[in-house]
Design a binder for these strands. Structure first.
Length: 501
DNA sequence: TAACCTTTGAAGGCG
DNA sequence: CGCCTTCAAAGGTTA
């Protein structure tokens, strides 16, 4: 993968990720052949999808204003035209199409963000600023790096706010474009419009809904100090992580990644404000202290996973937070007994559910879902995901590589944040255990059902080939439940291990 | 109201 | 080591 290694400076190595491109060949086939497989489901939908892809560059403010878009050729043309016009308005050269055709990122998420009422610097712009700070990298010793980041972010906004036409080495046109547009933030605001660039990295979506800034944020009081803050401080550095409008401006720690490669940034968009580690990932000013004091080795942030910003960590889900938070808050206020607090913390610790880091496809989905929904007028996630899956395969290597890289960073950061966490921890999270059990039961029943009608239930499942079927029975039911195996599998088992290892 | 559906990828377990 | 299962997001649908 050219991009990953070519980017240099990434000591993380991307080889493992490259392995993930198992379907590259398939992908290329699909693309080159325009194969029938590419059309089946999509014949109905893909027309919309394809069309949408042509419009992927249309996430400009002007387009946002035109939503909901009539799906017609004329609209497309108009969109294109207006885009061109917009391009001219946006200082011409700066408004160029992304380096990757069809690449969905248009880095002007802030344009539609309800959280950017003023003209303060957009998150993306800050991302660009920040990415220039090498310490941003999430590396071992991340805490120091984050602290350094905090310091690095300090430069007064005066440096930041202004016409941004800085040219960073290796910066893409798009980056500049984004940078530039970011200063025109308040142009259009559609509270109801979900920007296509819904935050990539999000572990929890509950806290930053575009149209509904969390109450605790709206109060705009520094949770740490209790000092009220101006809603939109012109001065970002001390406060930006705290106000709704500025939370989204926190640069994604991974933001340095892409831009340095001359590729679009994974936006920490405002739109939904659902950042993967929205706040946690956004290792910024508040992060350093947050990590050091609130995310001790054992990953559990005290006080119902709230950051100093008052924003719960996205990767942490505490179902009982609501009930307990009020109680604990009051109690903590009334009683100065730290021991009690500790006990509660430990209690919550056990209830904390740390979500898995998002993989590349999930990141991609998160970003593109809103777009697909808007373009295809589909709401059912299952259908949308099918489309997204196809789109994913249609992505070029470079495009996918970016997501793989991002996902890798995500995992790394996740590891740093929750050193002791294991994916296994989420396996039998009681409720989920039930679900899986039920699922398994269903599969089992299905298997039995098939047995009634088909000699080989495995063969009744279209995608499963004869050869792969036997493996499934053993793997699925295990040796101790051979009674659930299909006939052929049992016979083969007896004869000899036709279940190749 | 919980589970399902649907996608891909990562991680863990099992044989 | 290879295969399978589970989970991650998401939101309409289903039981």
């Amino acid at each position: 993968m050219p991009q990953l290694n070519g980017g240099g400076g990434d000591d993380l190595g991307a080889n493992d990720e490259m392995i993930s491109f198992k379907d590259e060949g398939e992908q290329e086939e699909k693309i080159s052949e325009n194969s029938s497989a590419e059309r089946d489901l999509a014949d109905v939908k893909s027309s919309l999808v394809n069309e949408s892809e042509t419009n992927q560059n249309s996430s400009s403010d002007s387009e946002a204003e035109r939503r909901p878009p009539p799906r017609s050729e004329t609209f497309r043309d108009k969109t294109r035209e207006s885009l061109e016009e917009a391009a001219k308005r946006q200082d011409g050269g700066l408004f160029k199409s992304p380096p990757y055709p069809g690449y969905p990122f248009i880095m002007i998420p802030d344009l539609t963000s309800p959280y950017l009422p003023n003209g303060s610097l957009s998150p993306t712009a800050r991302t660009y600023l920040q990415m220039k700070w090498p310490l941003l990298d999430v590396q071992p010793g991340g805490l120091q790096s984050r602290q350094a980041l905090k310091d690095a972010r300090s430069p007064s906004p005066a440096h930041i706010v202004g016409p941004f036409c800085w040219e960073f080495p290796g910066q893409s046109d798009l980056s500049l474009h984004q940078f530039h547009l970011s200063n025109k933030v308040p142009v259009v605001q559609h509270p109801h419009h979900v920007h296509p660039l819904t935050p990539l990295i999000t572990y929890s979506n509950e806290h930053f809904t575009p149209g509904n800034p969390p109450p605790h944020l709206q109060t705009d009081v520094d949770p740490k100090t209790g000092i009220p803050r101006p809603p939109h401080p012109p001065d970002i550095s001390p406060y930006y992580p705290l106000s709704p409008g500025t939370v989204g401006q926190i640069p994604h720690p991974l933001g340095w990644l892409v831009p340095q490669q001359g590729q679009p940034v994974y936006p920490i968009t405002t739109g939904g404000f659902r950042h993967p580690y929205p706040t946690a990932l956004t290792v910024n000013a508040s992060m350093s202290s947050l990590l050091s004091s609130r995310f001790p080795p054992h990953m559990v942030p005290p006080h119902h996973s709230l950051h100093t910003t008052g924003i719960p960590h996205p990767a942490i889900v505490t179902p009982n937070v609501k009930q307990e938070s009020t109680h604990s808050d009051i109690s903590s206020l009334n009683s100065s007994k730290q021991t009690d607090a500790k006990k509660e913390e430990e209690k919550k610790k056990q209830q904390v559910h740390i979500k898995k880091p998002l993989n590349a496809f999930m990141l991609y989905m998160k970003e593109m879902r809103a777009k697909v929904v808007a373009e295809c007028t589909l709401k059912e996630s299952a259908a949308i995901n099918q489309i997204l899956g196809r789109r994913w395969h249609a992505l070029s290597r470079e495009e996918q590589a970016k997501y793989y890289e991002l996902a890798r960073k995500e995992r790394q950061l996740h590891m740093q944040l929750y050193p002791g966490w294991s994916a296994r921890d989420n396996y039998a999270a009681n409720q989920q255990g039930k679900r899986k059990k039920r699922k398994r039961e269903k599969q089992q029943a299905e298997s039995n059902e098939h047995r009634e009608y088909f000699p080989n239930p495995c063969l009744s499942l279209p995608p499963i080939t004869d050869l792969s079927a036997p493996k499934k029975c053993r793997a699925r039911f295990g040796l101790d439940q051979q009674n659930n195996w299909c006939g052929p599998c049992r016979c083969k088992k007896k004869v000899h291990s036709l279940h190749p290892r």
